[in-house]
């Protein structure tokens, strides 16, 4: 179980880094937004990993469930909030990209920059 736990953590790091790299290195604005989503998803995975308790179950109290061990509900609540924050950011980012495309005719960062410099 410890191995699985560590594996979770490594996957978290891998996805986090991939997202981060995409945000920094890619010129395409849509790609940057997708990278941002990956970056945030990785953090969700971290929190949900924290919440898992060995032998536990979904934290819903029910008489038919005899087990006493539940997974930790608090990180799950935090991530519910964070997911919604993530989609809100993406939606706003997309709207800005649409406007950038209309104003500059491009969604590549370097092209946009050169258009402003030449203007």
């Amino acid at each position: 179980m410890i191995l699985l736990d560590l594996f979770h953590y490594w996957v978290f790091i891998a996805i986090l880094m991939m997202g981060f790299y995409t945000v920094i290195a890619k010129q395409n604005l849509i790609k940057k937004l997708l990278g941002l989503s990956l970056f945030q998803s990785a953090v969700f995975l971290l929190f949900i990993g924290i919440a898992k308790v060995d032998g536990g179950t979904t934290p819903i109290l029910h008489p038919s469930i005899s087990t006493e061990i539940f997974s930790n509900p608090l990180p799950q609540v935090l991530i519910l909030t964070a997911i919604v924050v993530g989609i809100s950011t993406s939606a706003l980012g997309l709207a800005i990209v649409v406007r950038i495309k209309e104003a500059y005719g491009s969604i590549e960062e370097d092209q946009i920059q050169s258009k402003d410099e030449s203007a």
Binding site: I48, A51, K52, T58, S71, I79, L80
Partner: peptide, 8 residues
């Protein structure tokens, strides 16, 4: 879901 977070 496998990590017991059904709501999430």
């Amino acid at each position: 879901f496998l990590l017991d977070a059904a709501d999430v």
